[in-house]
């Protein structure tokens, strides 16, 4: 069939970046940025996002981007946002990208401070569930049982519930999204863009390298995470009003786990325990709605 030309939003991410082939982060960044538009300021901190955004003196983003220190994505964004307001440019959104390490671990304190003051920026946590660009070390976003370089027998701790932490700050908007559901992700970025105050997006973006998958599996793994309820898609308004965006197929967790080499060592009882915890979390989430 001859496909007719259609109008598409401008691309903000440029080719030639250094992401691994099939990188989920690159897909996520691309989707977030094209939803945000090319009139914006972006902050990045050390993470795979920083790798993708380009080595000096080259940039992979088509918008002004500030490369800040690991632990201060949120206050950097807050500062830029304040400065733009002083200059009278309060229509320019500021968006911070940080990895799960920069959010769950290293940047948590400063993120909490900025959220507490309800500073005006969008914070996108690009979660690939470990410190991937330094060579796959465990973070507090790494799920239980997952292999990383520093949890060779499988992670013993459970994934930190970052959405609850953000909800506890009573920020106007917090949402989960993943690269497997592009429309949902786009809608959430656009919705966040129209709001003011601290807006938080927890974006699951599978990592073929660190999750030990084939290169083409990132979108599929992301869909599987949602369809198994391991990573439900939902929004929290004002820290208390929960909305579930997608009614999953409720597939068994094996659908998700079996795609990934980092779970290859699981025993049947481990899978059972992941299933039980997933079910518990899903019931808990539904109770909150």
């Amino acid at each position: 069939m001859v496909v007719k030309a259609q109008s598409r939003p401008a691309e903000v991410l440029r080719p030639g970046h250094a992401g691994c082939p099939g990188c989920g982060h690159a897909m996520g960044m691309r989707m977030v940025l094209r939803a945000l538009g090319n009139r914006a300021v972006v902050v990045v901190v050390p993470s795979c996002v920083a790798v993708i955004s380009g080595p000096y003196p080259y940039a992979a983003l088509n918008v002004p981007m500030f490369h800040s220190a690991f632990e201060i994505a949120a206050p950097t964004a807050a500062g830029i946002s304040q400065a733009l307001k002083i200059q009278g440019k309060d229509d320019i959104p500021v968006l911070a990208f940080a990895g799960d390490g920069g959010t769950f671990d290293i940047g948590l304190q400063s993120l909490s401070g900025a959220a507490d003051r309800n500073e005006d920026f969008i914070y996108v946590c690009m979660d690939n569930e470990a410190y991937m660009n330094t060579g796959i070390q465990v973070s507090s976003a790494t799920p239980r049982y997952a292999w990383t370089g520093t949890s060779p027998m499988g992670n013993t701790r459970r994934k930190k519930h970052i959405m609850e932490i953000m909800a506890a700050h009573r920020i106007p908007y917090a949402a989960t999204a993943c690269i497997g559901f592009a429309d949902d992700l786009t809608a959430k970025v656009k919705k966040a863009k129209e709001m003011r105050g601290t807006r938080f997006l927890h974006l699951l973006s599978p990592c073929p390298t660190g999750w030990k998958m084939e290169q083409h599996l990132s979108p599929k793994a992301a869909v599987a995470a949602v369809e198994t309820n391991i990573f439900p898609l939902y929004e929290i308004f004002g820290g208390s009003e929960y909305v579930i965006n997608y009614r999953s197929k409720g597939l068994p967790v094996e659908t998700y786990l079996s795609l990934q080499g980092r779970y290859r060592h699981l025993r049947p009882e481990d899978v059972k325990s992941i299933q039980a915890e997933t079910d518990r979390n899903w019931e808990e989430l539904k109770r909150r709605v």
Binding site: E11, R30, M31, A182
Partner: peptide
């Protein structure tokens, strides 16, 4: 059908649409 998925999911922004 021109659904654009291949284009949109390309992490390299290197899939050219029609």
């Amino acid at each position: 059908t021109g659904c654009d998925r291949c284009f949109l999911y390309c992490p390299e922004v290197s899939l050219l649409p029609p």
